[in-house]
Amino acid sequence: MNKIMYLEFERCIGCRACQAACRECGDHDAKERNYVEYVDFTESRQTFPMLCMQCKDPACARVCPANAIQITEEGVVLSAMEEKCIGCRNCTFGCPFGIPKFDFEKNKMYKCDMCYDRTREDIAPMCASVCPSDAIRFIDFDEMQQLRRRRTQMNLVEGKKPQEGNKWDYVPEFFGVYTDSQS
């Protein structure tokens, strides 16, 4: 798997298509595993999508007392193995990003597995394939580098180079302004 997930939070329009798509994915049992949330509902309607980072050394797996969270050879951190998960929810508290979800009824944890059946064949995960505003993208590593470079350039072009003292005045740099993705 040479591709990566690329998120641009400020591109999110809050349509929740990614969540609907996630529910349709194989082995997801009609439950979404990603999040679309408001940055601050009292201030603006800006939403952001959130998925698992697929850490190299995942905190969730480290805090699991049953050793139930496994990492595939491609580096995808899978949901807790159903036969091992004892339902203690340590993973939901250990995860620095608050990703794992817990099903109290079935007594098991489930989390974003990047649609493992798709991504292991280099097909974009469900969320990335439906996102209408390209907030979630499944792209090559090189393309990601290019996009990131472009973002810094755009900042400079617009004269909005954030300083340490005033960066919060200018950010988010692309709030509602879409990056040029023609490159």
């Binding site: 952001f48 508290f93 794992p100 960066k167 950010v171």
Partner: peptide
């Protein structure tokens, strides 16, 4: 610690951090 916050606040913190929007 990050585990002192609820998962939803942790997700928000990450997004704010990424967008450089944390309360200064």
């Amino acid at each position: 610690y990050l585990s002192d916050y609820c998962p939803s606040c942790r997700r928000r913190m990450r997004a704010l951090k990424q967008m450089n929007m944390e309360a200064p």
